[in-house]
Design a protein around this nucleic acid. Structure first.
Length: 1005
RNA sequence: GGGUCGGUAGCUCAGGUGGUUAGAGCGCACGCCUGAUAAGCGUGAGGUCGAAGGUUCAACUCCUUCUCGACCCA
């Protein structure tokens, strides 16, 4: 359709509803402007003064704030600025005396670059730290690093091997020094990577678990366990590589297929109900070599067991007619099949199995095995494979071991297998025979055991099977479970330490803390930690490694095998003092024993323990040296925040450690986040090529986009990230950025002199104040509940729906065209200023870079920073529920008008809404009065608008969900004001010929 | 294999104790504006609420099973 660009542009065939309106005899109830039916409108009139450009007389938004952010380039500039301004330190000075809030940092491990999980974690922490600060607290954050441990030690060993050296040739403290250098290197790198994300904190003085003070405190905390009697020397099965003759951690193990023997073995009932006399319990195992170390048989009471009698079998068969076997009912047929039984019958139920005693299958051959084998309830027993009974060797399996711990039978641990997986000298028949040889190939042990079982008549069947089996990832050789001496902390031993408020034992204190002292976000975390701590066995503290804090204690071994632990505060004090100045290396120096024992204890009697502490003890102790011992510290921490995997990790070890040394949890609140997956909800992996690294996001989009992604996601469960999602995040960012940009433009030159009191404002502005007050509550509550998603969503919707699409759109006219002294325009700018002050500070914890840019654009200055201010108070009396309800109704009515205009636009009868002057039929008198009081033509952005009490003519526009309102569109009468673009009848009657009355006055001044 | 948690439009999320045609924003399509312009406004199309059973007058909401995914453990 042709356009002349000068005024009204009604097509010749325009058929307005006005005719119908007139025909229906409707009279406008409250005409705002004279209105004329469209049939009376003349065709396009040439404007008389097209030569005059009134644009310069308008007050258009003015700002240098760029529409496009260029975050990747510009963010480093803000970082530099914050560093120069010493923002974090300055806040510490000015916030002194406020209510303290301390998020205690869970230390990441100092190796490798950051991945997306690190970024999520630290950004969430930063949301908390910044929001708490701006909410009026003294919010401190000291980042930390976990520096000891196996992964770093391996790296150094690898370097040695590459040079053809063995780590055994290297003096311990030389190795430790290498490890320290390695950790230092990565702490430096990670620190810069974290800072790049905009994370604020005491980056100049972080805590490291390898700081001398930290090592001294960790040792000191350990010695508290020595002194309170909870430490003991025990024995526990660990993954053991016979080839390398070393224990392996789970991470050092990989699973490959392995060909194993399978055997079905009979254990005769020697003590039990009459019905079971002469019967045998049948077990199935893939590790025949563990049979000589058998100490029990596990069953599950939820499984149904039966007594089965063999009625026919070949004469040369191991299973003979007349044998009575106990088997799980669902598995009986399988077992009989494997045993090549020709026929059998079920002769009865097994009955209760608790308390039944079995004999060892090799007991007949040698008194070595003449002990009772108890039947024990084990919840790990299943009836989907095997026999429904599990042969239990507490020294060679974790389930087995824990079952014995649970039943108080750890004294029955065996020591039958030596370092190279061969049987010890004291084991009859098998001494010297190995499970795996020095190359990891099958040894002679399994075959020998099977032969002896046959000889004893205890074998029911045998076979071979291929299954997934753990191997050393270094030698690729299969591993075994083997018990080794280890140091434990007793979880259930009552501690006489005067800290019994929440329980006598570590477990009691932990469980009470979980229930009564700690708040959980999300709530599911409570149960998770509770059930873990409720069920966990004693804490194994010792590792046979070099890079860590040693178990600083001395032992005396008595000839009967018992072990005494030295408990001397003077010795402990010497150790701590040495560590403070020299670090834990002091323990490994020559002469350390003599130095620490001093003259109080015969040096020959005592041995120095050379194991190092589980790194979980290090990080579990961070609350002692990073909170308690820092001048800026408080205890307990306000909050700990980590991934859900840390229920098993840091939350757990910190809890145990603190319950042993302080009698309660070291935190008041725990926040957990899920894991970050790819766009399809799959785990990220290099091989799948679906990884997203924080560095890539920062480079492509900027840190604020990554932070925005965090804010938009529900962090309490697993989140997704990927190209499409990030693109969406960047879109949201742009939308928000432009809204802020518009405010900057609209506020240009605003001064206090312009301010208007709320009472003097139009209702629309007071409605916006109401929304601010409402949002203030949402933001404060949301930040305190760590609900960043809720906060951001509320603010984003406010910015797009209430501001951009509604208030800004309506008030553009006032902002651009009203005279500067006009009360309405002043009210708009006053409210705009209030919106700005809040929106920018509310968003500052989430988008620190962009909000700083926005802030500086308005308040430039060398000392200016949004991060030095608080979220402003919002007057409670801005809240006005009545007004909110009223504007809810107004906006509904507006929707009907815009709907009607849209139809006109579709039909090409209008373009801009200012071309229209609709008649709005409102059935409800109350609503009609409301609309007449709010300058509804402004709200609808039409040049004129008529409210009518009359019944709507048929054909008037309505919306199903908004009854009682009908709209008849008509065209605005008059000429287009060359300045405000409204079509008004008075245009041409003023000194400035092409403009309306208002504009004429505005120009004239 | 066990335990825990989760699966609502293309994307990010809302949907008290079960109750009218399942909502929002973004994106997309279309239209408008051209004085927020690599912007702004409007309208619209998108969902068998992971699947199948069951309880109920009524289920996205309760139960069971299955499936997919994640974490922890084995």
């Amino acid at each position: 359709m042709p356009r002349d660009g000068t005024g009204s542009r009604h097509p010749p065939n325009y058929r307005p509803g006005a005719l119908r309106l007139r025909a229906a005899g409707v009279r406008a109830a409250a005409p705002i402007f004279p209105r004329c039916p469209l049939t009376d409108v003349e065709m396009t009139t040439e404007s008389t003064d097209t030569s005059i450009d009134y644009k310069d007389t308008l007050f258009l938004p003015k700002t240098d704030f760029p529409m496009r952010a260029g975050l990747p380039q510009r963010e480093p500039e803000w970082l530099k600025r914050w560093e120069d301004l010493r923002v974090y330190d300055r806040l510490r000075e000015t916030a002194h005396g406020r209510v303290p809030f301390v998020l205690h940092d869970g230390p990441p491990y100092a190796n490798g670059h950051l991945h997306i999980g690190h970024a999520l974690n630290k950004v969430l922490k930063d949301f908390i730290v910044r929001s708490q600060q701006m909410l009026g607290r003294d919010s401190r954050y000291v980042p930390g690093w976990d520096c000891h441990g196996l992964p770093i030690e391996w790296k150094i060993e690898e370097q040695y091997r590459a040079k053809g050296k063995s780590k055994d040739e290297v003096p311990v403290n030389e190795l430790r020094a290498e490890c320290r250098r390695f950790a230092e290197h990565w702490v430096g790198i990670q620190r810069e990577e974290f800072k790049r994300l905009g994370v604020t904190g005491d980056w100049d003085d972080p805590y490291l678990t390898m700081d001398f003070h930290a090592e001294a405190v960790i040792a000191d905390e350990f010695m508290k366990f020595v002194m309170n009697g909870s430490l003991y020397l025990g024995s526990k099965p660990v993954m053991w590589s016979p080839v390398e003759k070393t224990a392996l951690a789970e991470a050092e193990v990989e699973y490959h297929d392995h060909q194993s023997h399978t055997i079905w073995v009979k254990f005769p009932v020697v003590e039990g109900p009459e019905a079971l006399k002469g019967a045998s319990v049948v077990i199935w195992t893939t590790t025949p070599w563990t049979i000589p170390s058998n100490r029990g048989v596990a069953f599950a009471s939820r499984i149904s067991y039966g007594l089965y009698k063999v009625t026919a079998a070949a004469d040369d068969n191991w299973a003979k007619a007349g044998d009575v076997l106990l088997l799980a009912d669902p598995l009986a047929a399988d077992v009989m099949g494997a045993a090549r039984v020709e026929s059998y019958e079920r002769v009865g139920d097994a009955g209760p199995l608790e308390g039944i005693m079995l004999g060892h299958p090799l007991a007949e051959l040698d008194p070595f095995w003449a002990y009772e084998v108890p039947m024990l309830e084990g919840d790990f027993v299943t009836d989907d494979a095997g026999t429904g009974f599990v042969h239990t060797a507490p020294s060679h399996g974790l389930d087995d071991y824990e079952l014995f711990v649970k039943n108080g039978m750890v004294d029955r641990m065996t020591h039958n297998v030596t370092e190279d997986s061969s049987f010890a000298e004291h084991v009859p028949f098998f001494a010297g025979l190995a499970v795996f040889d020095h190359k990891g190939k099958e040894g002679k042990a399994n075959k020998a055991v099977i032969d002896k079982l046959v000889e004893a008549g205890a074998l029911l069947a045998r076979g071979r099977m291929k299954h997934s089996y753990p191997h050393s990832w270094r030698s690729k050789a299969p591993v075994i479970y083997r018990n080794t001496p280890q140091w434990f902390v007793a979880i259930d031993r009552p501690l006489d330490d005067g800290m019994g408020t929440y329980g006598a034992t570590i477990r009691e204190r932990a469980l009470t803390s979980i229930d009564r002292l700690v708040s959980w976000t999300p709530q599911t975390g409570r149960n998770r930690l509770y059930s873990m701590i409720e069920a966990r066995p004693d804490w194994v503290l010792s590792r046979q490694r070099a890079w860590g804090v040693p178990l600083t204690c001395f032992v005396k071994r008595a000839p009967d095998g018992t072990v005494e632990i030295l408990r001397d505060p003077a010795v402990n004090a010497r150790i701590k003092a040495a560590f403070e100045t020299e670090g834990a290396d002091a323990w490994f120096e020559a002469g350390a024993k003599e130095r620490f024992l001093g003259n109080d204890h015969p040096h020959a009697d005592w041995d120095r323990v050379t194991d190092i502490l589980d790194v979980w003890f290090d990080s579990g102790s961070t609350h002692a040296f990073a909170l308690r011992d820092r001048p800026d510290g408080i205890w307990p921490a306000s909050v700990y925040l980590e991934g859900t995997d840390q229920h098993r990790g840091w939350f757990h070890s910190s809890m145990l450690q603190a319950c042993g040394t302080r009698g309660r949890a070291p935190y008041d609140a725990v926040v957990t986040h899920g894991f970050t997956l790819d766009e399809n909800g799959m785990k990220m992996s290099k091989s799948l090529g679906n990884t997203v690294s924080p560095a890539d996001v920062v480079k492509q989009y900027g840190a604020d986009i990554l932070r925005l992604w965090v804010a938009q996601t529900d962090f309490t469960v697993d989140q997704r990230i990927g190209p499409e999602i990030l693109k969406g995040t960047a879109d949201s960012y742009r939308r928000l950025r432009n809204t802020l940009r518009y405010m900057l433009g609209a506020l240009e030159g605003f001064s206090d002199a312009e301010r208007v009191e709320p009472q003097a404002m139009p209702e629309l502005e007071r409605f916006v104040l109401h929304r601010l007050s409402e949002l203030d509550g949402v933001v404060r509550k949301g930040f305190d509940a760590f609900d960043f998603q809720g906060v951001f969503q509320a603010l984003f919707q406010f910015a797009t729906v209430d501001l951009s699409a509604f208030w800004f759109d309506i008030r553009k006219d006032a902002l651009y065209c009203d005279a500067p002294g006009d009360l309405r325009r002043r009210a708009v700018r006053t409210v705009m200023d209030a919106v700005f002050a809040r929106l920018v500070t509310w968003l500052a914890p989430i988008l620190p870079f962009t909000m700083e840019e926005v802030w500086l654009s308005r308040f430039p200055g060398a000392e200016s920073s949004v991060h030095l201010v608080d979220i402003p108070e919002t007057p409670a009396d801005w809240l006005n529920a009545g007004l909110a309800a009223k504007w809810e109704a107004v906006r509904k009515a507006r929707r009907v008008v815009t709907g009607a205009l849209e139809l006109e636009r579709r039909e090409k009868r209008i373009g801009a809404s200012l071309e229209a002057a609709p008649v709005v039929h409102v059935a409800d008198p109350g609503l009609r009065e409301t609309l007449s009081g709010v300058e509804f033509q402004d709200v609808c952005i039409t040049s004129a608008l008529t409210l009518s009490a009359a019944e709507a003519p048929s054909g008037a526009f309505t919306l199903d969900d908004i009854p009682g309102i009908a709209v008849v569109p008509t065209l605005a009468e008059g000429e287009k004001c060359a300045r405000c673009w409204k079509i008004l009848p008075d245009v041409g009657r003023h000194a400035h010929p092409g403009v309306c009355e208002r504009c004429n006055a505005a120009i004239t001044g």
